[in-house]
């Protein structure tokens, strides 16, 4: 009984402060600057309690952009493994979703959902910051359903 109440409080708090990690895995970094713009005053992710983190061990939500190159693939796997549960993964941009313009390049081993489970897809090349913000809120919902938060 008490444990359940405790869990609920933790979960409530967690949903109100999703810490995000952004990782660019070899696109044109257009998606990366748009993800970055989400942190700045006009879009302001802190309205939703979000905070950008550099360390996967501190973060709850992974925002991944870019077609995954071969050199970065193992690093990406490690980032995913280091992120503690419960976590959510957002694929930002057509590169991460379907490899985009790089679909037949020789050094690409993506798309992202072959490498790790993806919860939310944000299409666009690049998506606008508003879309990324919406994707983030969607990820919170997915999260809640999956972990009953």
């Amino acid at each position: 009984m008490f444990r359940r109440i405790g869990d609920k409080i933790v979960c409530y708090a967690r949903r109100k402060s999703p810490w995000i990690l952004h990782f660019d895995t070899g696109g044109c970094n257009g998606c990366a600057i748009e993800t970055f713009a989400v942190l700045t005053p006009r879009y302001d992710i802190e309205r939703f309690g979000g905070l950008s983190k550099a360390n996967p061990r501190h973060s709850d939500i992974l925002i991944i952009s870019g077609a995954v190159t071969k050199k970065i693939e193992s690093r990406l796997r490690r980032v995913y493994e280091q992120t503690p549960e419960p976590k959510a993964v957002i694929a930002v941009g057509s590169c991460a979703i379907s490899k985009g313009v790089f679909h037949d390049a020789y050094n690409i081993s993506g798309p992202l959902d072959r490498i790790m489970p993806v919860d939310v897809y944000v299409p666009g090349c690049p998506p606008k910051p508003e879309a990324i913000l919406q994707g983030l809120l969607k990820a919170l919902d997915v999260w809640r359903e999956r972990y009953k938060i």
Binding site: L21, H22, F23, D24, T25, G26, N29, A32, I33, T35, F36, L39, S52, A54, N55, P56, R57, I72, R75, R78, V79, Q82
Partner: peptide, 13 residues
Amino acid sequence: LPVGPQHPMYIEA
């Protein structure tokens, strides 16, 4: 220190 790879500041790895 802990291995903490990525940072949103520099966009390419």
